[in-house]
């Protein structure tokens, strides 16, 4: 495989990220000019590696939960028996999107306490919409001749869903998950305002102590993670779309 420039850049970004997380002190000279009054240039109130892994874990749990619920709802409302729940489901996931995550945090803390839980709730609600809408699009825009044929050959409803509809809708569903993951990666940082252990800690510590180096470290790690994960999932979608022969209609 020939390495294109974007691929090389991504590889470099990945290597730099891993190196920074493993050996932050190597990068001290880079961040030194951003600090004042001999403040530490590298975040020193915990391991950046640990925070990154916790951040990713929070996003992963929230996304998996949002995927299960959103995809489940989308499957339900695209069955003949569940069609009447479509407006209701749409309202529910839209409300999830309308509530600002900060407001969700504020409301959730009294109910479930400080820590990771309110963050998970906020990310979960915020991630529902893209997955739901994309799953709905994927499941309802299958070529008519294909759905017709899947009934015509004598598949049961379950067989049509698992063998034809979901595999064919997968690239579109995955695009929804990708959007949700990227939104969650960024949004998870505010979870640190309610004591969730995410990369938001680094940013908040920087803001509190007026340390630009900290803010930049936290922000850069989240940003690079988002770009790399976004690209990886996009590549996966392209592979899946090519395999299903639908790449022409999915080039966007």
């Amino acid at each position: 495989m020939r390495l294109s420039l974007p691929t090389v850049l991504r590889l470099v970004a990945l290597i730099v990220l891993v190196a920074f997380l493993a050996r932050p002190d190597w990068f001290e000279p880079v961040f030194r000019p951003l600090t004042q009054n001999n403040a530490p240039a590298i975040y020193n109130q915990g391991s950046l590696m640990t925070l990154t892994l916790l951040h990713l874990r929070t996003v992963l749990i929230a996304t998996v939960a949002a995927t299960i619920v959103a995809l489940g709802l989308a499957i339900l409302v695209t069955r003949p028996a569940g069609a009447e729940f479509l407006p209701l489901s749409r309202s529910l996931v839209n409300i999830g999107q309308t509530f600002p995550p900060v407001a969700v945090l504020a409301l959730a803390v009294p109910a479930v306490g400080f820590g990771e839980k309110p963050t998970l709730i906020a990310l979960f609600l915020y991630g529902l919409l893209p997955i739901f809408e994309n799953s709905l699009t994927g499941l309802t825009t299958l070529p008519k001749s294909v759905t017709e044929a899947s009934r015509g050959v004598g598949m049961t409803g379950w067989q049509r869903l698992t063998r034809i509809e979901l595999p064919l809708a997968l690239p579109v569903i995955l695009a929804g998950i990708r959007l949700s993951v990227v939104i969650s990666l960024a949004t998870a940082t505010i979870g640190s305002t309610v004591a969730a252990r995410t990369l938001g800690e680094v940013i908040i510590a920087g803001l509190l102590s007026n340390n630009l180096a900290f803010v930049l470290q936290g922000g850069l790690i989240v940003g690079i993670l988002a770009v790399l994960i976004y690209d990886a999932l996009s590549a996966l979608e392209r592979v899946l779309a090519r395999r299903t022969g639908l790449s022409q209609s999915l080039t966007t």
Partner: peptide
């Protein structure tokens, strides 16, 4: 068998 064959693309 139908028009446009309806083959499963995947």
């Amino acid at each position: 068998a139908i028009q446009g064959h309806g083959l499963f693309p995947h």
